[in-house]
Design a protein around this nucleic acid. Structure first.
Length: 601
RNA sequence: GGUUCGGUAGCUCAGUUGGAUAGAGCAACAGCCUUCUAAGCUGUGGGUCGCGGGUUCGACUCCCGCCCGAAUCACCA
């Protein structure tokens, strides 16, 4: 039973005994005591003052007295300030909690709920490399998967690769025309960057053609349509759909270059997938579903042969599902992908990690799946996150105002190495390889924490001119706290094992806790609830905030008290155990964010 | 114009279902390493919580109106 549940029970009994109130859960308001007051937990007594017909201060006093007499020593002290009853929980209770935490190797994770959640994230186009926007998506998706696993879900991480369409043809065409057979090997470029360069090249050449046509007196819209490059790209797309062997072979070759590049970026980001879907495989399935819907009268065909869904009854518009020429659109593909997924897995909950610019799309998708008879349709979750903005606005691939994912990671690790130079070199027996590994973990930790600490729903700002911090509320600050603890534990050696029994097995009540020890233990007891709340809210930011608070509490404790040099062996042991638990909770929380911990730094 | 989401310190961000004097970090300034890692700790200054009403013991939080910003309302994805 949690502390809140126990206290809630006692407070309920108190107001019943004192005032004859049958208090429900809403009325019994418990909160953590604010730092400026003495105590650990606070009861807000305002809800009872009316029925008690006494001043808030008096009510708080009376409940406090009653709890002292009837709480089986759980509550050691109390003080009443206006309508707030501050309770001090007995040291023995906290020490018992610490013992339980220390004994639980899976502390903070919840038991399996035997339900399966599929989390889709990343979802790249294969015509350009990943940028900072994708980085936010990948980090959020991966972290959410980890958080839901910690909440007892079986999670399947999935990726839908948009590997077909006109945008891919543009890169292919530009490469054919201007590439002169360039390959990742011949140029030394990563495959995704190589393809991205040709996507940009297409746009440059295309714009030049438009300009030329307009100079000849053509209006802009016509020029855009009639430019030879665009016509060629469309012809190529048609050939692709018809299965033309040459186009298909080129397509496969170039996509494989991109995949090799993506794999490297994913590996460096530390994200992974259990199952990858490709739109080239799912769009036909989507067309089949639309045809079925058409036959069953769920959708309708217009005179021009295009197929539509009428969602006006649901407060939305009419939505195109198949073009006049029978080709599919984004929505069609998503229907097909959903169908295949539910064929492949017994999914209880489907989560799409996709930017908030697509909220309308997922509203529509949810309705369409529901109309097509998929039971999961109505309950799909669009985990909608905000954009990453630069000081001068949104990132735009074609305008070159993007922060490239690979470049950014390089810069972060380089900065970490630079900052650590004087520091890490002083570590005993440090090797160049270990120093590099520390720089990698710290640089990536700074980047990941920087992104994940922000509420996912909000747009966030990234200023390329200001390097991401390594001090303060950052990933490295938390990693540093962890590394410090590991250093202490290494020096403590085997005494950790022995001490566990000497402190926690006997004489629980003889040790009085110092204030900052208690604060830390209380913080640790909040971890499971933090994991649960973060799961319910789909919020890695809450985990980040929790980990930061633990680290702050520990650093303050570490500064004020000695651990290994403490003379009282019981206290020394308790502090070692406490430090060990802090490190484990920090490590666990940060792993939910996909952030690795260095053993030294 | 309709819908959705935002607006909190100079900057970047927190702020559980309404609770005590609204918090961190960065930046600025002032201290703390003969003691377990100073990527740390302590302190100072910095606020009309966009504006105006309302609900009540109590509002950054809930309701209404307005202002500002973003996204979206495609035979793009």
């Amino acid at each position: 039973m949690t502390l809140e549940q126990q206290l809630s029970h006692y407070v309920g009994a108190a107001v019943k005994a004192l005032y004859g109130i049958e208090a429900d859960e809403k009325q019994i308001q418990l909160q953590k005591t604010r730092a400026e007051f003495e105590g650990n937990m606070t009861v807000v007594v305002f809800p009872f003052v009316k029925a008690a017909r006494k001043a808030p201060q008096m009510v708080a006093q009376e409940i406090g007295e009653w709890l002292m007499a009837n709480s089986q020593q759980l509550i050691a002290k109390y003080n009443a300030v206006q309508g707030f009853l501050n309770l001090s929980i007995a040291d023995a209770w906290w020490i018992a909690q610490l013992g339980a935490i220390h004994a639980d190797p899976a502390y903070g994770t919840w038991p399996a709920n035997n339900r399966l959640m599929m989390v889709e994230y990343s979802s790249p186009n294969t015509n350009k490399p990943l940028h900072l926007g994708h980085v936010r998506n990948n980090l959020l998706g991966y972290s959410i998967a980890k958080i839901q696993e910690a909440n007892g879900w079986k999670v399947v991480k999935t990726n839908i690769v948009n590997d077909r369409g006109i945008h891919i043809c543009k890169s292919m065409l530009a490469w054919l025309k201007f590439g002169q057979g360039e390959t990742p090997e011949s140029s030394g470029k990563k495959g995704d960057h190589l393809i991205g360069d040709y996507y940009v090249r297409f746009d440059v050449e295309y714009k030049a053609q438009i300009k030329q046509l307009m100079a000849q007196g053509m209006d802009e819209d016509t020029a855009k349509r009639e430019a030879p490059l665009m016509k060629e790209a469309q012809a190529m797309l048609l050939k692709w759909e018809q299965g033309d062997p040459e186009v298909r072979a080129l397509w496969e070759k170039m996509n494989n270059w991109v995949y090799a590049g993506f794999d490297e970026t994913y590996r460096r980001l530390g994200v992974a997938f259990d199952k990858i879907y490709y739109e080239s495989n799912t769009y036909l399935e989507g067309k089949k579903e639309v045809e079925r819907g058409l036959q069953e009268g769920i959708f309708y065909r217009r005179a021009d042969n295009s197929v539509w869904a009428d969602l006006t009854g649901d407060g939305l518009d009419e939505k195109l599902l198949l073009r006049q020429d029978g080709t599919s659109v984004y929505m069609t593909q998503d229907i097909g992908t959903a169908k295949l997924r539910f064929k492949d897995y017994p999914i209880d909950k489907m989560v799409y990690v996709v930017g908030n610019e697509q909220e309308y799309h997922f509203k529509v998708l949810s309705l369409l799946l529901d109309k097509l008879g998929f039971p999961f349709g109505k309950e799909l979750v669009h985990f909608s996150y905000g954009m990453v903005e630069l000081p001068n606005g949104k990132m735009k691939s074609r305008e070159g105002t993007v922060v490239d994912a690979d470049d950014l990671m390089d810069a972060m690790v380089r900065d970490a190495k630079e900052i650590a130079r004087d520091k890490v070199n002083t570590l005993p027996d440090i090797t160049e390889a270990e120093a590099d590994e520390i720089a990698r973990k710290v640089g990536m930790g700074a980047l990941k924490y920087f992104i994940l600490k922000v509420d996912p729903r909000k747009n966030m700002l990234f200023n390329p001119d200001e390097s991401i911090d390594f001090n303060g509320n950052t990933g490295p600050f938390i990693q540093y706290t962890y590394a410090r603890i590991q250093s202490v534990l290494r020096k403590a050696g085997d005494s950790v094992i022995g001490s566990r029994f000497s402190v926690l097995g006997s004489g629980l009540s003889v040790i009085g806790l110092e204030e900052k020890e208690l604060t830390l233990i209380q913080r640790l007891t909040e971890y499971p609830a933090a994991v649960r709340q973060a799961g319910e809210d789909f919020s890695p930011a809450q985990i980040a905030a929790y980990a930061y608070n633990v680290a702050c509490d520990f650093n303050s404790f570490y500064h004020d008290y000695s651990i290994l040099n403490e003379e009282d062996p019981a206290k020394r042991s308790l502090r070692i155990v406490l430090s060990d638990c802090v490190a484990r909770v920090i490590g666990s929380a940060m792993s939910l964010l996909g952030i690795e911990m260095p053993e030294r730094m």
